[in-house]
Amino acid sequence: MRKLEEKIFKGLMIGASAIIISILLYILYIIIRKGIPSLTLDMITKVPSGGYYLGKEGGILNAIVGSLLLITGAVLISISISLPVALYINFILHKNSRFSNIVRLSFDILYGIPSIVYGAFGFMLMVFLGLQASLLGGIIAVSFLIIPIMVRSIDEVAAYIPRDLIEAPQSLGATRYETLKVIVRQLMPGITTAVLLAVGRGIGDAATVLFTAGYTDSIPVSPGQPAATLPLAIFFQLGSPLEEVQNRAYAAALILTAIILLLSFSARYFSAKLSKSKI
């Protein structure tokens, strides 16, 4: 009886794990099968002609470039905010001080806030500042979304930095700021992982850019112009009645998925490197 129960539950567990793996494979299979036939050279080298919703010709270069510009801007802004925060709560303050823990909790909460709320807030901010839906607006909204991700993941690796590494430069007469330069060098693989994670989350999120970045057929040449993005290229073009336009959505979905896969595996590579260099 007891043996039977053990067997049944072990079977259920293996079943559940197998279901989860097969769902992932099924998702990848569907996205690849739908995307491959539409993924031509024109698709990735041309902007849509005759409108992204009704024009049958052209590709999704506007969305590819838009997404890359947007995420580059957002990463630059958020690294210059999240790195100081993570360093401050770990190395300037004691890492388990009360203030550090309050900051951690608030970033955990910020991390949980849905992207649609960041999108709405970002839009509100833009109206307040008199900005139009633009590349800059999208960059600001996506920065809100990815700052908590970066802080959390840099904070996680910062815990592994040994106390000695902080004390050695200081005993040689370095100021705390100079000590931080040593620490940042040591944290580099962790920071890289954080950036990769943040890029993955930021480049795929549609709800934040929906009202803030706008959408356009052309490639933005200044931060004040609206920018097309891959997730919205998928969302908008999938809704079109024309098959040619829908195919652009499938191609965009495949490209986005490929980017996510690449980022995820590189993040893995860097964090493996990090655990090797753990002292």
Binding site: I23, L24, G204, A206, I234, F235, A253, T257
Partner: peptide
């Protein structure tokens, strides 16, 4: 599974 964007 955690990394695949919602739109996908």
């Amino acid at each position: 599974l955690a990394g695949i964007p919602p739109v996908i």
